[in-house]
Design a protein around this nucleic acid. Structure first.
Lengths: 147, 147
DNA sequence: GGAAATTGTGGGAAATTGTGGGAAAATTTT
DNA sequence: AAAATTTTCCCACAATTTCCCACAATTTCC
């Protein structure tokens, strides 16, 4: 089963709703029950996991030791921003203001397929990010992918 | 079945009642019978377990050795503050003053979903706690979750 | 190429949620 | 036993969220 891929620039309406591109929607397993979990991602974008993928992450989390001080801190930081949403009849999900603000998203969003999950960015911020990284892309590729 | 997640800042009314966010309420198993058990948690916050989860904890506790001095001490501390409450028609639970005082909660509370249970914090105290944890999130993530 | 279905966008109506407070019932105190 | 306090249950209100419908643009299918 292929993962999420491609990108799309979609609008965010007054109620904070963002449509999931249909070509990404059909990549979701039926086990996700049209449900996604949105949370803070790295580099100030929003990560969105289909429910079944999220469950696997939760399992990893619950395997941590809840009596360890450090682990507790991580779990709290991790669960804090997670928000379970269901896709409405028109293929949209509602996102909470705090998440949108974290990602700096206002009227427009860039949706990025990234294998197991989606990323939602403020388009401008993504450009800036790319530009900053572009310089070392080849170096990075060699370093990360090189055998 | 996914666990509790997300956060919410809710008010505490004059009678010590705090609403449980509906999106967390629906995560409760019907076996909990709309009943929760609140008790002292770690880091000076309140832990709130759905009744069915609490039962499992009690089982673990009763498996401890009552003839061990240490075990007895632990059991007493743990059971002492436990308080069984039911969710009212508006989705709220009443919390005893001593618990609220322990957590330093007055007019506002931060409710945190933490998989099997909820945590209720004084918002300021939670901020301080996160700040005091020296490591930043990404470092922790790589450390705790990295394979 | 053209008809039909699907997709992305917006907005209104209805239901739910969070908050506060009042009255009744139970408990404790005098 | 009466008074005072606490707890429980109920109602009201504003704000938010959910659900539903409309419409234009695009894509799909024959």
């Amino acid at each position: 089963m292929p993962g999420f891929k491609g990108q799309a620039t979609y609008s965010v309406d007054g109620k904070g709703r963002i449509a999931i591109p249909s070509r990404m929607r059909i990549c979701m397993s039926p086990e996700a029950h049209n449900t996604l979990v949105a949370t803070r991602g790295f580099e100030q974008c929003i990560f969105v996991y289909p429910l079944d993928e999220w469950m696997e992450i939760e399992e990893q989390i619950s395997a941590l030791n809840p009596y360890s001080h450090k682990h507790r801190a991580f779990i709290r930081r991790f669960m804090r921003w997670a928000d379970e949403v269901t896709i409405d009849a028109k293929g949209r999900i509602p996102l909470q203001r705090p998440l949108l603000e974290y990602a700096g998203i206002e009227k427009t969003s860039l949706i990025l397929g990234n294998q197991k999950y989606l990323e939602i960015w403020d388009p401008q911020r993504f450009d800036d990010y790319l530009e900053a990284e572009e310089a070392d892309y080849e170096t990075l590729a060699a370093e990360v992918m090189g055998s």
